[in-house]
């Protein structure tokens, strides 16, 4: 479904993504593990197209020069130059890190804003689907998003992404900063989203909470993918064990 080939991303002369190739097939739940500044977010932003927008804005104000090279294919088509809105229409939706929600709007309005591309009826159905996956949100639907707890905001952020009807969902560190209990709960929800037929690519710093739900994973270090394998192979790898599982 998604094929990244020899991707290189420069911020000025610094290499953020160094020759990355990865693949996600239909229906899979794939993780990219890596520490801070390994390039996970840049990878997600490149696949979602957000980086193109950042690049354009930097260019306008004469800021950082961002260079993107390589191939990103989605369902067989090259998309590396497509702007983010076009990618969303084709089903590539990014849920950014640190639960970025619309803080002054209540939960329901957050979801309605996120249904921008769809008809009123589709939005209604979408909201029901989100509430089915995250029942907490139904109870909190009238609360302002800025007043939700971190975990609730993360669920809402996932809900916002779901409202855009992804076929390939990109989740950037969804478990960051949550308590272990919430992490397990949210991980189960992500598994459920994937089970409903939404292919998911998720990044994470710590492997433990995400390990039980993934099919395959990559390990990223300093912009390079240094290891790839299925869940068992990841768990058996001594380096992964020490660096990301804390064993």
């Amino acid at each position: 479904m998604l094929q990244v080939r020899n991707l290189l991303v420069f911020f000025e002369n610094a290499l953020a993504i160094n020759d990355v190739s990865l693949e996600v097939s239909q229906g899979e739940l794939v993780a990219v593990l890596g520490s801070n500044s390994a390039g996970k977010t840049t990878l997600m932003n490149t696949v979602s197209g957000l980086l193109l927008d950042i690049q354009k804005k930097e260019q306008r104000r004469g800021g950082e020069r961002i260079t993107i090279m390589g191939r990103v294919e989605y369902e067989g088509r090259e998309i590396i130059q497509q702007k983010p809105s076009l990618r969303v229409k084709q089903g590539i939706v990014l849920c950014q890190e640190r639960h970025p929600v619309f803080r002054d709007s209540d939960v329901l309005e957050n979801l309605r804003i996120a249904g921008y591309l769809y008809t009123r009826r589709e939005v209604k159905e979408g909201i029901e689907k989100v509430f089915a996956i995250f029942p907490v949100l139904r109870r909190l639907r009238k609360r302002r998003a800025g007043l939700l707890s971190g975990g609730e905001q993360q669920m809402l952020a996932a809900g916002i992404a779901l409202m855009a009807r992804p076929r390939l969902l990109l989740m950037d560190e969804p478990l960051l900063g949550l308590s272990p209990l919430l992490q397990a709960e949210l991980a189960a929800s992500i598994k459920e989203i994937c089970r409903q037929g939404i292919t998911t690519l998720v990044t994470e710093q710590f492997a433990r909470p995400i390990m039980p739900i993934i099919d395959r994973g990559y390990v990223m270090e300093n912009g390079r993918l240094v290891f790839s394998g299925n869940r068992e192979e990841l768990m058996d790898n001594p380096e992964v064990k020490s660096a990301y599982l804390g064993v």
Binding site: V93, F102, R112, I113, L117
Partner: peptide, 25 residues
């Protein structure tokens, strides 16, 4: 509060990047 463009306005006002990632230009 109740039209598509209006809601997109509210989204943009609050968080441009999130608005972008749900397809708002």
């Amino acid at each position: 509060h109740y039209t598509k463009i209006g809601l997109a306005f509210r989204g943009m006002a609050q968080n441009e990047r999130t608005a972008l990632s749900v397809g708002i230009e």
